[in-house]
Design a protein around this nucleic acid. Structure first.
Length: 276
DNA sequence: AACGATCCCTGTTGGC
DNA sequence: TGCCAACAGGGATCGT
């Protein structure tokens, strides 16, 4: 499922394909995908006829910078992906938004489970859009140990749950949270406020290493998630996962057997042998 | 304020 | 083999 490394990989692949192009037409086939737009009908109007200037990313949000102070926001949810095709032929099922460019190609936003969403925001919208008011990006602008220690100090929830809270750190999802905690040798059940400064530093190092490795591999494509990337390929990080999806297997550190627990209604994979 | 549960949605999986 | 319930999860929302 798209987390920070998958979104960043998508961003990097999209840049040479769409930056500099002008948007000709925008078609929304499923209204639900634009559900967070302040005025739903503004979506097409704000994009059509305008040039794409660049693409940024914050957490799991793709932020396409468009002429006229417009930000085209794309969140892939858990099953979304973006592709760029030469024309309208052979659109995959569940393609809900199509953006046609001036070179004849089209950008497709495909999302079977429709947890993704997209909006065209102007400056005033961006300031008030609560869904984009996230904490610092976990990869591009990671916080200092001191900052995170302070943010966690009053928290009693399990650290695993806090890593999924985008208002603390933006970009980490269920897979990379488990992988980062394993890398840092920290149990997902530890309460946030009980981590020592040294633990927090280990966690930040684990996050940085895991996200870096994920991006280097082009992200993670799970078995039921075809076509994750705009180039039609899969990410290669799946085979490098140390704990996620590996319940019952031996930990590669040789210290125990990987468990699956449920924390906040989410699967958590971890090794009680090396994570404390 | 913070925590935890529930819901949205559909393709895939696993149990019977 | 076939059917269907369970499961996957990001994040909004709601009850506590």
């Amino acid at each position: 499922m798209p987390e920070l490394p998958e979104v960043e990989t998508t961003r990097r692949l999209l840049v040479p394909l769409i930056v500099g192009r002008t948007i000709e037409t925008v078609t929304v086939g499923r209204e639900r995908m634009v559900r967070r737009q302040p005025q739903r009908r503004d979506f097409e109007r704000r994009l059509e006829g305008r040039r794409i200037i660049g693409i940024d990313r914050h957490g799991k949000h793709l932020l396409v910078d468009v002429e006229g102070d417009v930000t085209w926001v794309i969140h892939l949810g858990m099953s979304g992906h973006i592709s760029v095709a030469a024309g309208p032929a052979d659109r995959p099922p569940h393609t809900h938004v199509v953006v046609v460019l001036d070179d004849g190609k089209e950008i497709r936003f495909t999302d079977p489970r429709t947890f993704g969403h997209t909006e065209a925001l102007v400056a005033v919208d961006r300031e008030t859009a609560s869904f984009i008011a996230h904490g610092p990006d976990a990869f591009s602008t990671p916080p200092t140990k001191e900052w995170l220690v302070e943010r966690l100090a009053t928290r009693t929830a399990p650290i695993k749950a806090l890593l999924l809270d985008q208002s603390i750190l933006a970009g980490i999802g269920n897979i990379y949270a488990d992988e980062a905690l394993h890398r840092a040798r920290i149990s997902p059940h530890r309460r946030g406020g009980r981590l020592s400064p040294a633990d927090v530093q280990d966690l930040l190092d684990g996050i940085a290493w895991t996200l870096e490795a994920g991006i280097a591999a082009g992200g993670t494509t799970l078995a039921d998630m075809a076509y994750l990337l705009p180039n039609g390929r899969s990410g290669d990080f799946l085979s490098e996962l140390a704990v996620y999806g590996r319940a019952g297997e031996d930990c590669h550190r040789g210290d125990g057997t990987i468990l699956r627990d449920v924390i906040r209604q989410r699967s958590s994979f971890w090794c009680p042998g090396c994570q404390h």
